[in-house]
Simulated scan of single mutants.
Amino acid sequence: MDAQVFRIAPAGKSGGGQADEGGKCGRCAYRTLCLPLGLSERDLARVESAIGCRRRLVRGDVLFRAGQPFGNLFAVRFGHFMTSRSDYRGERYVTGFQMAGDMLGIDAIGNGEHASTATALEDSEVCEIPYARLQALMVELPQVMEHFHRTMSQEILRDQSAIRVLGILRADERLASLLLNLSGRYAMRGFSPRRFQLRMSRDDMARYLGLTLETVSRLLARFREQRLIRLDRRELEILDMARLETLATGVQGAAGR
């Protein structure tokens, strides 16, 4: 399905035609995640002028595919995405889950093509940012460059954390780490860190954690029995945050080895 595309009207200008005033950065609930603090109205208008358009996608739509030429970055305005790749055998594995305020496409800057495929996990919307425009904007506004570098650094740290999860932790520790990661990211966005919906399927979780679907299903059932979580379909509630954090650190597993 083709995504709906909307042009963003810059700050201080009246919307007309296909322009969408509701898409302004200044009115976005997640602007503190995408943009540096303290931008003036004039600077905010310059940022908005760098955004090409907004794109709306429905569940299952592909935003970009691995191997596709790079030209744009995408800031998630609302909804959830999943990025995935295929190994040399053609087996798909998940590289990350993205939500509102996250940036997609950063991994394509280095070699000029997307390294992963980004798929909408539900009805979602992104702000499309032509990279050439962003580069020019960063020259004009050093605070935007600093914020972008900070975002890239956070991406590196997230990748390093994922390596630790897959390379060191046991299966139950991996799952606990994923649930806590989602909890912390929802808290950063003003949502409950204890009650949220799992937008991804159990198979997606398994492909991200390097586990089988059966293992993830069994572990979720065990977490319920141990009163660590409550789970109804995809509605999750963390009942014992402290115990889940202890499990995620690998302390319990280390003691038993």
Rank of each mutant, 00 (worst) to 15 (best):
C25N: 00
R218C: 05
R195F: 07
L247C: 10
G38N: 00
E235K: 15
M145D: 11
L231Y: 14
L141E: 03
T215V: 09
S49F: 04
R77L: 03
Q98A: 10
V62F: 02
S124E: 02
Y30D: 00
V62M: 10
S183D: 05
G253N: 13
R199H: 12
R224M: 12
M1D: 12
R56I: 05
A221R: 15
L73V: 04
D43S: 09
Q4M: 10
V144A: 03
R89G: 03
M188V: 02
R42N: 02
D240T: 12
E173C: 03
M188C: 03
Y208T: 00
G22S: 14
V47K: 00
R194G: 03
R234E: 14
E122S: 10
V144H: 03
A176S: 10
Y131I: 05
P10C: 04
A115N: 09
L231S: 11
F6R: 14
R164D: 07
L35T: 00
D123H: 10
G16R: 04
A45M: 02
A248D: 04
P69I: 05
S153A: 13
Q18S: 10
P193H: 10
E122L: 09
D87S: 03
N72I: 09
A136R: 12
T117L: 05
T212I: 08
A162T: 06
R55W: 07
R230V: 11
G250H: 07
P36H: 01
I163V: 14
M138W: 03
T32H: 01
Y208D: 00
A120W: 01
C127P: 01
G105D: 10
M99D: 07
Y88W: 08
Y30Q: 02
V94W: 01
I129G: 02
R133A: 08
F191P: 01
G22E: 08
T95R: 05
V126F: 04
G250S: 10
L137N: 01
Q160S: 13
G79D: 08
E91S: 07
M152R: 02
M82F: 03
R89V: 10
D203V: 05
M188P: 00
S40E: 13
T249M: 06
F78R: 06
V216P: 08
T246W: 14
L236G: 13
R174V: 02
A187T: 04
G79N: 09
Q4W: 08
